[in-house]
Design a binder for these strands. Structure first.
Length: 544
RNA sequence: GCCCCUGUAGCUCAGUCCGGACAGAGCAGAUGACUUCUAAUCAUCAGGUCGCAGGUUCGAAUCCUGCCGGGGGCGCCA
């Protein structure tokens, strides 16, 4: 939260508090004055339910109490407050003067795209965000795209909130799937049928065709898959700081260390020839196998070693955020149980589960399985709709929803995609500034411009919404919910388009002082749009 | 059988964690608006028993209980 926003809130809360004291009320020690933005603007800029909350305990009529508080506040108005009123069952509503909104514009312009909406609630805390982590057995597909867009947006939001963020990709380059993948590549190269449960997609045929005859299928295949993943993710501007290899954990002995630590904690036992984790001692509903009866590790044991490693790298105050698809939700309890068995702070690991994307082609469901041979690669999605539209579309909705993504429609509806609406708003304000320059308008510095002439409802609406951006970013970061920014951008862009339509900035009949003020306004709007888009990883074009 | 997500306007969804004021957008539909910065736009209208039934509360889309529908996952694949 910016200093400025904190001030307006604090000053309103302080004033309310003072009013409650003046009314002779006994306030509970932990009493917090509730302040919120009303859903309807007729109810003012800020609203408090303090009278409602306190009336019952005080044996007072809420509406009456609110009237008393409101009268006191009218007599002792905090800065920027234009009007205090009572409404509904006893809400106290504050209407702020335009002077407050004009300060918002100045703040946005002064802070710029780099600084506006930037906060320090993270205080440099290290967060390792692990996402995508697709198996190195094939290309990233359309479903991974959602995790990629989401994980990167969460990382960007946390960065803007003052966290030290590391983006991480975990490579499952060991185990049953890797064996089958290597065997499939080898079989195709030799002209043999792929093994049972092997990989059958067209991509594996294509890849095998490019594999040198003396290449080790496992090593070569791993590099082939990773090269694809890195390139495709890079084409949507997702880049990782760390690529962690499961095999490397085996080689370094980290897995044996983890097992020893679990043993020492009394969290393991042998049964049916296998090694088990006592995960049911913690948050899991049953125990889990760590080492199979054939002596091989399951996925779980290396993963435990991996999380130990990550926790160590993140430091004692660090936080791990894993972005997992819904098909992995059953693993949340067991990995947390394992961490608990090792004595780790349970709040240091957070798993964000994203629901799967439902893919359709011409109305018919397409499975995401890599083995059907009919996979939809992320590359195809990006090629069809573009990186910006792909990211924005993936972030359009809450990760708790299961969106239907029809590829045929996605290609056909590109022009209807909301991303263009938002980007267009940005391009428009840029084009106004460019026009002003072309027309020879000499810009004054912000301090020299009288923003008091900004009184049009379209102008004020832009600033009202802009003033909420840092709250939106805070909420989006804390709730790991980038779609809040997407929603805000769509509304903010609508306000900008409305202004554009009704208010001219340059041209005949526009007083020079109004041109100057509106140029400041569109600078502020541009900052808001660019900040919002950048937290989603979507570009803010100056022309379209 | 158990676990996770979900059910809000014709369609796609915000809002639910942290209860408030007549439930908000977009698309589709109807009707209007370009001699000045991009009509990829804007304005107006129309459209909803917030899955159902109880409960808690001054107040429930939001919290609790039960039921119904949709998606996903369920000991040694990842």
């Amino acid at each position: 939260m910016s200093q400025f926003m904190a001030d307006i809130r604090v000053s309103l809360a302080d004033a309310l508090h003072a009013a409650l004291i003046a009314a002779g009320l006994d306030l509970p020690g932990d009493f917090q004055v509730g302040l919120e933005r009303p859903a309807r603007r007729e109810h003012g800029d800020w609203s408090s339910n303090a009278a409602l909350a306190i009336a019952k305990g005080a044996g007072r009529n809420p509406r009456e109490l609110a009237g008393e508080l409101s009268a006191w506040l009218e007599e002792n108005q905090p800065e920027h407050v234009a009007e205090v009123s009572v409404a509904g069952p006893g809400f106290i509503n504050f209407r702020l003067a335009p002077s407050w909104l004009h300060s918002v514009a100045k703040e946005a312009v002064a802070a710029g795209v780099e600084g506006y909406g930037r906060q320090n609630i993270g205080q440099g805390r290290t967060v390792i965000v692990e996402f995508v982590s697709a198996n190195p057995t094939g290309p990233v597909h359309a479903g991974h795209g959602r995790g990629a867009a989401y994980g990167d947006a969460v990382a960007r939001l946390l960065e803007r909130c003052g966290y030290n963020v590391q983006r991480e990709f975990y490579i499952n380059d060991r185990g049953t799937q890797m064996d089958l993948y290597a065997a499939s590549l080898a079989a195709i190269r030799e002209g043999q049928p792929v093994p049972e449960d092997g990989y059958n997609g067209q991509y594996i045929v294509d890849w095998a065709a490019g594999m040198p005859s003396d290449a080790d299928p496992r090593r070569w295949g791993r590099q082939r898959a990773l090269a694809n993943q890195r390139e495709v993710l890079g084409s949507m501007a997702v880049a990782f700081d760390t690529w962690s290899s499961e095999q490397a954990l085996v080689d370094s002995g980290a897995i044996d260390d983890a097992l020893a630590a679990l043993d020492a904690a009394g969290a393991t036992y042998e049964s049916e020839g296998a090694m088990w984790l006592r995960s049911s001692d913690h948050s899991d509903d049953k125990d889990r196998v760590l080492i199979k009866s054939d002596g091989e590790y399951t996925y779980l044991l290396p993963d435990i070693a991996y999380h130990r490693d990550k926790l160590e790298r993140a430091g004692s105050q660090g936080l791990l955020i894993n972005v997992w698809g819904a098909d992995h939700h059953g693993y949340v309890a067991r990995i947390k149980a394992a961490m608990a068995a090792l004595g780790c702070d349970p709040t240091s690991l957070e798993v964000a589960v994203t629901q799967l994307v439902r893919l359709e082609r011409d109305g018919e469901e397409v499975r995401l399985s890599k083995r059907t041979g009919d996979l939809i690669e992320l590359r195809e999605v990006i090629d069809e709709v573009g990186a910006d539209a792909a990211r924005f579309t993936y972030l359009l909705q809450s990760m708790d929803t299961t969106p239907t993504f029809d590829l045929a429609k996605a290609a056909a509806q590109v022009m209807e995609n909301p991303v263009f609406y938002v980007q267009m708003a940005h391009a428009r304000v840029c084009s106004i500034a460019a026009r002003a320059r072309a027309d020879g308008v000499v810009r004054l510095s912000v301090d020299q411009v009288d923003l008091g002439v900004l009184v049009h409802e379209r102008e004020l609406e832009i600033l009202r919404q802009l003033a909420t951006l840092d709250e939106v970013i805070t909420a989006a970061a804390e709730e790991r919910a980038p779609h809040r920014v997407t929603a805000w951008l769509r509304e903010f862009a609508a306000a900008v388009h409305s202004f554009y339509h009704d208010c001219y900035v340059v041209g005949s009949g526009i007083p020079p002082e109004l041109t100057q003020a509106r140029l400041v306004l569109i600078d502020a709007a541009r900052v808001g749009l660019a900040v919002g888009l950048s937290t989603l990883g979507v570009s803010a074009p100056e022309a379209m």
